[in-house]
Amino acid sequence: MGHFPLVRFVHRIVQHSRVAQIVVLVGVWGLGDLATHVLNLPVPGAIVGLALMLLLLGTGLLRPSSVQGGARLLIGEMLLFFVPAVLAVLDHVDWLGSLGMKLFATVLLGTLFVMLGTALAVDLSYRWWVRHAVR
């Protein structure tokens, strides 16, 4: 494909500009969203887009270096994109009292259980794997 001047031109832009890389990511997301709607898939468009992107990378149609910078930027600045949703607390002044304490305790204890359980399960299964799979 590298013989066509237009493909090479686009390729060069995408290699050097993170904005162009984000355009590629937005395009793949759009395709995923379209596929979800047209094919009536039970999976959200963003997830179909993620799968599509993996396919593009796996088949070599798209080089990792063509989206790397843009992908890092989007993931790194993700907080900016969800600040609007977090401001939902504005409507919940009632959380300042005992309800807020209960919610906090739920999140605190829940996170403790998740971390303990996940770390121990992974560590134990990894030790088992090391003992049995590797000689």
Partner: peptide
């Protein structure tokens, strides 16, 4: 709210660490 639209492409971007 339109800032949140960027969460879609950010999800697609997660393909890169997987790859």
């Amino acid at each position: 709210h339109w800032l949140m639209l960027a969460l879609g492409p950010a999800t697609v971007a997660f393909a890169l660490p997987i790859y």
